[in-house]
């Protein structure tokens, strides 16, 4: 087999194992309340860490990212419709690039 294919399969294995172990092994575990609490905060901490600062570099320029992000926050304050929020973010950064670049 081609070496590149073997590398890809290696990548697949090392990516899958950390995804799988906790999901399968922590099913029956009796966890301390503070550990449960820690785990319940993980999604929101992860969202924070995933959004910022990387959103700044997600489009052509920082200003165009900021305009998109700002518009998305504004829409998200009034609506929970994710598609609408995503489209408004794209639209904001698109409009900035159209006008200023």
């Amino acid at each position: 087999m081609n070496n590149t294919i073997l590398i890809v399969l290696g990548m697949a294995v090392v990516t899958y194992i950390p995804r799988m172990l906790p999901m399968v092994l922590m099913q029956k575990l009796r966890l301390q309340p503070y550990i449960k609490r820690f785990l319940s905060f993980i999604p929101f901490a992860a969202l924070g860490a995933l959004i910022f600062p990387e959103i700044l570099y997600s489009t052509e320029s920082i200003p165009s990212s900021l305009v998109g992000a700002f518009l998305a926050v504004l829409v998200a304050l009034f609506s929970k419709n994710l598609i609408l929020i995503v489209l408004s973010g794209i639209f904001g950064s698109f409009l900035y690039q159209l006008l200023f670049l």
Binding site: L47, I51, A69, A72, V73, A76, I85, S88, G89
Partner: peptide
């Protein structure tokens, strides 16, 4: 990223 904002 803005989807994450929408979730948060």
């Amino acid at each position: 990223y803005v989807m994450f904002i929408g979730l948060l």
